[in-house]
Design a protein around this nucleic acid. Structure first.
Lengths: 327, 327
DNA sequence: ATGAAAGCGCTAACAT
DNA sequence: ATGTTAGCGCTTTCAT
């Protein structure tokens, strides 16, 4: 049977209040003897207090909600692993929820978390409009956004430095003088990071003869790319795949078609989870650090929960640009 | 301000008890009018009950604890994603904990989960000895093990069919007549799956002239392999890397050394998260399905929690063997 | 068909 | 320095 604070109090011959004080580290007015005695009794009984009971009174659940856009994406693991580093320290538990790239699911996840009375939320938002998340603001629950920004800026946000890192990659491509650059990316209207990645290319090639073509796609499908390449068999384009899944899908398609990299088409992309270098001839890519993003977000959230002021601003975690031999 | 059941009761002009009955779907003795009325009020107020308060009374937390061996491993995401599929349905929340490949951390995670009063636990155990987890048995908390077994068999366990799938791969290798097979794997004494993978090779090549060499390593280091290859420059071995990380590390090392696959060394491994085919020349590997394992485990756990009897046995989820061109 | 009241394990005034 | 007591939001007998 699970022990309660009453059991401990009886065994120790003191009141529940004293035990409670002990548990919460309020020793200011406690005699050293009772303190030691309580410690001994707790150790002997191997008693652990019930967080839910305490939560009921204190309104602090020691639960952190995490909502990821798509849990099957590697980004999620890395992000969670980073968050975990700090919650482990603070003895908080994380509640993982998957939005499955669906606004309805995301909303449900958020409601769930609120009803669970989480102390704070870390979310990789699906919607770019802050308004969409008014219920969080209304509930007064601290939140930190990761990976994508939301307008107007309402919560502290931690992302990669998409624009800067992509521009760096674009700069490297500049020297190779491609006629056509194909940006294969999910709909950019929605997501800030996608816009930045596209814009970095546009800006870099603005005053060059290079044509930058935007190929918007859905659900990481590469059909628009396949169509373009099939329609322009004589061209020798450079492809920039806007995320890891697209990069992988593109690679697989080129493979199937027997197209050689970089002889037939050149390739580059965003996100490389260590495998891009293993693929012959080594894919040049931007490599971000979701674990650092997660850790930073968790620290920011912890501050907010502790009542310390946190600036509502975007923090950018630098990504690495790894140039290999794919263009 | 957060609404309580009392607010709803007042607004609806009925007692808390009636609201509670409504919330728990006990309509047997409820007039259709009050039922409809309560529904309307709840919708209007947008009320959501507090799980922790209810948990206090019912002893059901709707929390499922998940302990993974190493959260930064892709296996974890896939596993969680599978678990998530079923917990989403049942409105349960999952509490992810990382054992970080460390028995002390694992024990702490388990204690944490017990004190959180979780309804059940899904664990990828670090220790092969069931005794190690007696505190779970003592606490009467339902548990399902995944990925690795524990002796004696104490909990329902869901794993891949390590032996069978590895044997299938070994069989394919058999026809290529290698003189030396190097099994690179983390310490096999500890983990059941590792033993099975090794044993599958030993058994397959028992009556052949092929030598099967066990190269035990630690922390996914490839030093033992590097040493062997350096020491036998004239040989043309086939390597079997016991997990995805080792496979990747091996690949990277061969790359660095300029060793060609399969001309200089042949390669194969366990775990392929879709990238193995993209690496030239396409790595032959066993591909397991952690998401299915997770889903199955979660279903088993749900049954146990519901009080339905669940057989204490090992369930094997078939892995795929993907033969490509690396040997 | 519905309500009153006690209590789940804990915390926090307010006593003493 | 420690105890008493009244809840936190919900469920559940037992009444009516």
């Amino acid at each position: 049977m699970k022990l309660t604070i009453t059991d401990v109090a009886e065994k120790a011959g003191v009141s529940k209040a004293t035990i409670s004080r002990y548990l919460n580290g309020r020793f200011e007015h406690m005699s050293a003897t009772t303190k030691a005695h309580i410690a001994a009794v707790i150790a002997e009984l191997n008693y652990t207090p019930s967080p839910q009971a305490s939560s009921l009174k204190t309104n602090r659940s020691h639960l952190i909600g995490v909502v990821v856009a798509d849990i099957s994406n590697i980004y999620s693991t890395l992000l969670i692993s980073g968050i975990n580093k700090v919650t482990q320290q603070s003895m908080d538990q994380i509640l993982i929820n998957d939005a499955a790239n669906d606004l309805k699911s995301e909303a449900k996840a958020l409601e769930m978390l609120l009803s669970m009375n989480v102390d704070g939320i870390i979310m990789q938002p699906l919607s770019p409009v802050a308004h969409h998340y008014d219920l969080i603001r209304d509930s007064q629950t601290p939140m930190v956004l990761v990976d994508r920004i939301t307008r107007p800026l309402t919560w502290p946000t931690v992302t990669a430095d998409d624009y800067r890192s992509t521009a760096k990659l674009a700069q490297a491509i500049l020297n190779s003088h491609y006629e056509d650059i194909l940006i294969l990316i999910n709909p950019i209207a929605q997501i800030s990071t996608r816009q930045s990645r596209y814009q970095a290319f546009v800006d870099t090639f603005k005053k060059t003869p290079t044509t930058v073509t935007l190929l918007e796609t859905d659900n990481d499908s590469i059909t628009p790319l396949a169509n373009w390449i099939t329609a322009h068999p004589q061209k020798h384009p450079l492809i920039f795949a806007g995320n890891g899944r697209l990069l992988m899908a593109t690679l697989r398609w080129l493979h199937d078609k027997g197209l050689r990299i970089p002889q037939d088409v050149a390739l580059s992309g965003y996100d490389d989870w260590d495998w891009a270098e293993l693929v012959t001839p080594g894919i040049s890519a931007v490599s971000q650090h979701p674990d650092v993003i997660g850790q930073t977000a968790a620290e920011l959230l912890a501050q907010q929960i502790a009542g310390e002021p946190v600036a509502v601003q975007r923090m950018e975690i630098p990504a690495d640009v790894r140039i290999r031999s794919s263009f």
